[in-house]
Design a binder for these strands. Structure first.
Lengths: 332, 332
DNA sequence: CCCGGCCCTGGAAACGTTTCCGGGATGTCC
DNA sequence: GGACATCCCGGAAACGTTTCCAGGGCCGGG
């Protein structure tokens, strides 16, 4: 351990050839089979492993890609990671994780330094998009794919969910199932998803001819506990026959709140969540949930990034993954 | 985008000083305030960002650490990542993720190439430990911390859970609550945790004076669906008044199987899981679970690694994190 | 048999930093 | 006021690769 590693020079000496020949032999740029054999023998003997750092310096790429998101603990991001990782690994890239903790400062610094550096590409999932994000995005030295909403005038590849339509689908589904007092527990209103889901909720109400009642709306922070608290709030404050939670954790919290208040699901109150994480299928009762296609978005983003890193310079793409509703017992 | 980045030479030219001075100014190795100011002005003007690759080549460290585990989707590993990431980030390291898919080949290649390369340290969570693992561990060029069981003669820092004792605690708890026919749904027996938990289960039975009945034991693969299936199997096969699941997913599957079979929890059958993931608290009924301290293990491993990377060369440590049982409604 | 072209090899430069070293200027003390 | 120590800056080497380039051997054709 901590032994100095052999360099290409030592391999060359042992094999009795020049370092250029070693390099060529190892990279398959020679046709002399005997040369290759000698070099490989020397490599074997010394336990030589090329320095990726030196290679990177020379070749100007690092075989690394970063994925930056708010919090790896969030199931939706996790789903993305699970899709992104194999795609990139099969293409020979390593995945670097960057939890920003939703800090704008941190996200921007990822963009303008991280992306100019030890990474060949970046997939970014910003919770909020500020002017500084946009400015930084214009300056990056490597391809960036943004997952999430982005202003129209930013020409960067962009894979988005349509959580607005998704939220509307949830409301319409609940209405169709007979609900008329549909509560909504949102995440923070100043985040991109929080705002979009709220808009979708209102659009859904409008489409169903229901009035918007502020008593039916509460804001939490996308977590289980705060979801439970917010749900209790609404449920004790006013009359409710359905709850739409802005993500599955909030909806799970709602299920617990309902149980504590002695209400039954779905007979008494129907519940729908969002993101369709594994939680939804394993909850009790199994939770209806609007999938925003996290897995698809991850996979698409990874493939897009791969194409860009391979030199594809067609105009920026904008892919929107359509939402889909999975109906389970909680709203049946 | 894709514009060539300025180098230190250009900064030097703009600032009218030598590259050595630029380097010193940027790294705080100079006391001339005016020099620093001039350099920073030039840096600002050019938008210069040092090449981390070149720095790494020179300084021989990369400010990167890898975490290799079977599958990032597993909640226990996720918990570790959440702890490891901030510790390392605060110390200036980036975290590289490596999902091995439990492939021995892949794990060993991580060990003997990855660790000799673009990384200053490695945290490894092997599901199985083979001779090749051990051999590779002896050869690594950078500090490695292993989370999980390791043969005694391998002198590598090691943070372990005691899942054997944990499993035994679960059984004793169920016995104390009145259960006498305690079923066990394990993961694959040929994995380190699968084996340890099985051993703990048997030890628990022995401690309670209960016989080992093969009818009460079934093997799944640590997933929800296979856990549900295995639970159904056992529950229809024989008489059962408690189930211990080798992880929370299996226990969740068991809860669903019980519900489908019309048995109530905990009155009819008590259930205990393992890992105490967030799932446990949000399930219905809330799931009793043995915590193996994933979060603690992650944090400890990260700190240990940090110490090693800072040159601490005291003899290898072996830390065992004690299990703890959180009793919730499912076994009350 | 000689010459030209081709292929293979080795030498050397380059990638962008950090750091060692030497020289010149400055300050201080006698 | 001179000598010596001190400090600061610039030049250059080095980190470990890849790749360009030139030279030499070999083969084939004239």
């Amino acid at each position: 351990m901590q032994r100095r590693r052999p360099t290409i020079h030592e391999v060359a000496k042992v094999a009795g050839v020049s370092i250029s020949s070693v390099s060529r032999a190892l990279n398959g740029n020679t046709s002399n089979a005997e040369m290759v054999a000698r070099v490989e023998a020397a490599v074997q003997q010394l336990g030589y492993v090329p320095s990726q750092v030196a290679q990177s310096l020379k070749t100007r790429h690092t075989a690394q890609v970063a994925f930056a998101m708010e919090d790896i603990g969030n199931a939706a991001y996790l789903e993305m990671v699970r899709q992104i990782q194999p795609v990139l690994r099969d293409a020979g890239y390593r995945l670097l994780l960057h939890s920003t903790g939703a800090d704008v400062e941190d996200e921007v610094s990822v963009l303008d330094s991280l992306s100019q550096n030890y990474v060949d590409g970046l997939i970014l999932c910003p919770l909020r998009v500020t002017g500084r994000h946009v400015a930084a995005l214009r300056e990056t030295a490597v391809p960036v794919i943004v997952i999430g909403l982005l202003p129209d005038d930013v020409s960067v590849d962009n894979v988005r969910a349509d959580s607005r339509v998704g939220a509307r689908m949830a409301v319409e589904h609940l209405y169709a199932a007979g609900a008329r007092r549909i509560a909504f527990i949102d995440g923070p209103i100043d985040t991109v998803p929080g705002e979009a889901r709220y808009a979708g909720y209102r659009a859904g109400l409008a489409a169903c001819g229901l009035p918007l009642d502020d008593d039916l709306v509460e804001f939490a922070d996308f977590q289980f506990e705060s979801g439970r608290r917010a749900a209790r709030e609404v449920l004790t404050r006013t009359d409710v026959d359905a709850v739409f939670g802005a993500n599955d954790l909030i909806a799970m919290g709602t299920l617990h709140a309902l149980r504590e208040l002695g209400r039954t699901v779905p007979d008494d109150v129907r519940v729908v969540g969002m993101d369709d994480t594994t939680l939804a299928a394993t909850s009790f009762p199994p939770l209806s949930s609007v999938s925003l296609g996290s897995a698809d978005r991850g996979r698409i983003a990874a493939k897009l990034l791969l194409a860009r890193m391979n030199g594809d310079d067609s105009p920026p793409e904008r892919v929107t993954v359509p939402p889909s509703l999975t109906i389970r017992e909680s709203s049946r």
